[in-house]
Amino acid sequence: MKRLVTLTLVLALMLMASVNVFAQGLLEDTVAEKPYRIAVLLKTLANPFWVDMQEGVLEEAERLGVEVDVFAVAQEGDAEEQLRLFENVIAREYDGIAFAPITPVNLIPVISKANDLGIPVVNLDERVPFNTLRDRGAYVYSFVTTNNVLVGEQAAEFVIQKLGPAGGKVAVIEGMAGNVSGDDRRDGFTNRIKQEPGFEVVASQPANWDRTQALNVATNILNRHPDLKAIYACNDTMALGALRAVENLGMDVIVVGTDGVPEAIEAVKEGRLAATIAQDPAMIGKVGLRLLVRALNIPQQVDVPSLVVAE
C-alpha cells in the first residue's frame, strides 16, 4: 500500500517533469515589462481541473504584476458560447489572450480576428490543428498542454508494472465519444497495452464522463469478464464510479483514473484507487501566461540608430 502511494506520486512527478522539461524552467525568469491586460478563456469552471488552472493563472498573474481576467462557459459542451466569449474579449481590447478551446475548431474564426488586431494568442490544453489554422490564415503564438497520448501510455505502464508478467484482461472506460483528449488517452493506453505480451484490452466502452454511467458500464464489463484485472478510466469522475462497481462486487481489480482530482487522490491514499495520472493544470496555466507576457514584451518597433557617413 505504501509502495503504491509512492509509485503514484512518482508517476505524478514524472508527468509534471515532462511539462517542466517542455517549459524548461526557462520561462520562470519571465518578467512583465508593463502591467498588461490579459484574458484567459478556459472551458468551464464546473470541473476542478479548470479551477486549478485558473488558480495557477491568477497566482502567476500576481507574481508577474499583470491584470488577468478569466472567462469560462457554464457547460463544458457549449462551444458557441465560448466563441461569443472570445468575441467579447476581443472587443474589450485585451493585450493578449490565452484560451483552451472546447472543440479543436470552434474558435478558429475569432483567432484570426485576434491575429488581425495584433493580439498575441496562446493555445492551452487542447490543440487547435496548426495546418487548419494556417489554411484559415490564422496562427497561435504557442501551445501548452499535457500530452494525452502520453497520459494514456503512463497509465498503461502503471498497469503493466502492477500486474507484472502474468498480465491479464484490462478494460477502458472512455469519455464522451469524439472528445480528443479522451480519445488520445484511450489510444495511448490501448496501444501501449497491445505491445505487452499477456495483456489484452477486452472492453472499451463510453461512460460520457458521467460517474453513474461509469458505475453501470464497469459493472456490466465486470459481469461479462469476471477475470478482469484492471480498469483504466479516462478521467477520475468515471474512475470513482468504476471503483464503486469493483467495490460493490467485492472484486480484486485495480482501477486507474486520470486528472488527480482531490477525491481521487484521497481514494489513492486510502488504498482504494490504484493510481491517478495527475495533470498539472496550474502549471499549464502559468506557462501559458508566461508565454503571453514574453510575446507582449517583444517591442513592436525598434529604431536602429543611423550612422552619419561623411567625408
Binding site: 472492453a203 472499451s204 466502452q205 456490466n220 464489463i221 461479462r224
Partner: peptide, 16 residues
C-alpha cells in the same frame, strides 16, 4: 440496450 452494448463491447461510435 446500454447493458447489451457493454456486454457485446460494441464500438463507442456505433453506440449512439
Amino acid at each position: 440496450i446500454n447493458n447489451a452494448l457493454n456486454i457485446l463491447n460494441v464500438q463507442t461510435y456505433m453506440q449512439q
